[in-house]
Simulated assay, not measured.
Amino acid sequence: MTMDDYMKLSYHLDLVEDPDEGGYVAFYPELPGCITCGETIERAVENAKEAKRVWLEVAMEEGIAIVQSN
Score class of each variant (00 low, 15 high):
32 P>S: 12
54 V>P: 02
43 R>V: 14
48 A>E: 03
51 A>Y: 02
16 V>W: 03
22 G>K: 10
17 E>R: 03
25 V>K: 08
14 D>P: 00
43 R>Y: 01
16 V>Y: 01
54 V>G: 10
58 V>T: 13
46 E>H: 10
18 D>T: 06
39 E>L: 10
25 V>F: 02
15 L>N: 06
62 E>N: 11
3 M>S: 06
6 Y>R: 09
53 R>Q: 15
37 C>E: 13
20 D>H: 07
14 D>I: 11
57 E>C: 01
15 L>Q: 05
31 L>S: 07
57 E>K: 01
24 Y>C: 09
34 C>Y: 02
67 V>M: 11
52 K>Y: 01
43 R>Q: 15
35 I>C: 13
6 Y>N: 07
33 G>V: 07
11 Y>S: 08
64 I>R: 14
23 G>E: 10
5 D>S: 12
60 M>D: 10
56 L>Q: 04
66 I>H: 01
4 D>K: 12
3 M>H: 10
15 L>I: 14
13 L>G: 03
8 K>H: 09
8 K>W: 02
24 Y>N: 09
29 P>Y: 03
34 C>S: 06
24 Y>V: 06
45 V>S: 09
51 A>R: 09
25 V>C: 08
51 A>D: 08
15 L>V: 06
32 P>Y: 10
31 L>R: 01
16 V>C: 06
59 A>R: 05
24 Y>E: 07
12 H>R: 11
70 N>D: 11
22 G>R: 08
59 A>G: 08
28 Y>N: 00
34 C>I: 02
46 E>L: 13
18 D>I: 06
20 D>W: 01
5 D>H: 11
21 E>Y: 03
50 E>S: 13
70 N>H: 06
27 F>M: 06
29 P>G: 08
37 C>A: 13
69 S>T: 11
70 N>Y: 00
45 V>R: 15
5 D>K: 09
30 E>F: 03
21 E>I: 01
5 D>P: 02
10 S>V: 04
39 E>H: 05
23 G>C: 07
44 A>S: 12
10 S>P: 00
19 P>D: 15
24 Y>T: 08
25 V>N: 08
45 V>W: 00
7 M>K: 12
32 P>W: 06
34 C>W: 02
13 L>Y: 07
69 S>E: 10
18 D>G: 05
22 G>T: 04
49 K>R: 14
10 S>Q: 14
64 I>H: 12
64 I>Y: 12
51 A>L: 07
26 A>W: 05
20 D>S: 13
46 E>S: 13
37 C>D: 13
